[in-house]
């Protein structure tokens, strides 16, 4: 093995180690792309042209695309609100949303709105696990936030800075994980 090949081969475990050390899932995807390129180069240099082509096309391209879709669709917290509340208390809810994005952004989670027409639909949406968090504005002051997910409740309890109440309400008939 020539010294050039040796130097390039040493980059493969280096980039793999860097990939394992990433904490942000999106950054890990990018580093996975780099690892795929380095791997394809090393395979080609060692004489396995077919393996290199497969790594470049399937290993890098398909794996990155599939994982991008998986990460984007799974690392999301859906926040349910009633449409009337959103119209009347829009500013307060927007403050809440900004705060939620800041707190959950540290855990690399996205936050999305889901609007419901009636409060009964909202409660049903939470019971059927369509949303992870709901916000209700029953009293004139303050917004009440409820979540059935214990881990989310713990994060919100620990990180919350604006004066709003957070409640943990376990699902009565839980039929699976979150």
């Amino acid at each position: 093995m020539t010294s050039e090949t040796l130097v390039l081969t040493a980059l493969l475990p280096l980039s793999a180690g860097l990939l394992v050390l990433q904490t942000n899932p999106y950054r890990a995807l990018v580093v996975r792309g780099i690892l795929g390129s380095v791997a394809a180069l090393v395979y080609a240099l060692l004489g396995a042209a077919d393996v290199a082509l497969t790594e470049a096309l399937v290993g890098t391209l398909l794996a990155v695309i599939l994982y991008a879709v998986a990460v984007r669709s799974s690392l999301v917290v859906r926040l349910g609100v009633v449409t009337a509340d959103l119209e009347q208390r829009g500013k307060e809810l927007q403050t809440l949303m900004t705060e939620l994005r800041r707190v959950l952004g540290q855990q690399h989670l996205l936050v999305e709105w889901v609007t419901y027409a009636e409060p009964a639909d909202l409660a049903q949406g939470l019971a059927q696990q369509e949303v992870h968090v709901i916000c209700t504005c029953s009293e004139p002051m303050g917004i009440h936030t409820t979540t059935p997910i214990l881990r989310l409740y713990e994060i919100l309890q620990r990180e919350w800075t604006i004066p709003m109440t957070v409640d943990y309400q376990p699902l009565v008939a839980a039929t699976g994980g979150h």
Binding site: A40, L53, L57, T60, L62, V64, A68
Partner: peptide, 30 residues
């Protein structure tokens, strides 16, 4: 090996487009 290099150069970067689009959308949602 040259053929592998040409094919990798031509089509190996398509996943990059999807990742860039995803990151841009995430930056826009704040």
């Amino acid at each position: 090996m040259g053929l592998v290099g040409v094919i990798t150069l031509a089509v190996g970067n398509a996943g990059f487009m999807l990742l860039a689009h995803l990151l841009r959308r995430m930056a826009q949602t704040g």
